[in-house]
């Protein structure tokens, strides 16, 4: 009896999330707008408050320009093309560094998570590197690699490496040994166990690393561009402030925020596609 009751109330994945399809248009519209309001209401309120505060003189609009002025500056920079070059170079720096970190950290983490000897040997030096701020090392990288692109890409790579590596290692280590034993009991060999049990089991944790890594990469991008660059969005934030082009400064900040949101959203979508089975991802 218990069993049958449970069986009838279990929902199968494919049928979830379709509840809105059969509804009449008006109700659907009301519900959709209610959902948008509950999700973005506070954000919109914040922007409206900013606009009113800046344009009515409650705050110094030279320091905090009204939202429409910032949007205009942003529009000019994007359509006029003056900011496009900065976006391109910033994306190149962060993208290159992030890709290199992925290529190094994930395979290394997969090995370290499985081979105890490798992990034992590398762990102390990794902990030392990890606890040393990448920004503190930036001058060292500049000395070694010069003030050009190489040192910037390297410092971003360096900082991105650790969240990726550590999350990959812990993902591999946290795969349930009982699942590995189950595969072994069915005759699976090491490579099959790795491919069919360890790797898929580690994917959610690897995605945590990817998302942290993307955030870190953007953070270090800005920092490195503020310290020694003549192009890039981080440089534009600094430069516009020096020249008191405050709307342009905010426009650059908005672009940075947008880049972070887009990177995170891309990873979230990818994660949902790869980890449909995982509750925390859906």
């Amino acid at each position: 009896m218990t069993l049958q009751y449970i069986e009838k109330t279990v929902a199968i994945g494919r049928h979830e999330g379709r509840s809105g399809t059969g509804m009449e248009p008006l109700r659907l519209l009301t519900r959709t707008s209610a959902r948008i309001l509950s999700r973005y209401g506070v954000l919109v309120g914040f922007l409206v408050f900013w606009q009113v505060a800046a344009s009515s003189g409650w705050v110094n609009s030279a320091v905090l320009p009204p939202v429409d002025t910032i949007v205009a500056a942003l529009w000019k920079g994007l359509i006029g093309g003056s900011l496009l070059g900065d976006i391109a170079i910033s994306l190149q720096r962060a993208g290159l560094a992030f890709a290199a970190a992925v290529v190094v950290a994930i395979p290394l983490g997969l090995v370290m998570g499985q081979a105890r000897a490798v992990e034992t040997a590398l762990d102390p030096i990794l902990q030392l590197f990890r606890q040393t701020s990448a920004l503190a090392l930036y001058p060292v990288f500049i000395l070694l690699l010069g003030l050009g692109e190489a040192s910037k890409v390297f410092v971003i790579f360096w900082a991105t490496l650790f969240p990726l590596l550590l999350n990959t290692i812990s993902g591999v280590k946290e795969v349930d040994p009982k699942l590995i034993e189950m595969a072994r009991a069915y005759g699976a060999r090491r490579l099959t166990i790795f491919r069919r049990v360890v790797l898929p089991g580690a994917v959610p944790s690897i995605f945590v690393g990817l998302r942290l890594g993307a955030t870190t990469a953007l953070l270090l991008l800005i920092a490195s561009e503020m310290i020694g660059a003549n192009k890039g969005i981080g440089f534009q934030v600094m430069n516009a402030q020096y020249n008191f082009q405050i709307p342009l400064m905010f426009a650059a900040i908005v672009i940075l925020a947008a880049l972070g949101l887009i990177a995170n959203q891309v990873l979230v979508v990818l994660q949902r596609r790869l980890c449909r089975w995982n509750v925390s991802a859906s």
Binding site: L3, I6, E7, V10, I12, R14, R276, W277, V279
Partner: peptide
């Protein structure tokens, strides 16, 4: 009927 279900959707007995 449950061929396409994922383990987290099943009861212990299932």
């Amino acid at each position: 009927e449950f061929s396409d279900a994922y383990p987290r959707q099943l009861s212990g007995g299932m």
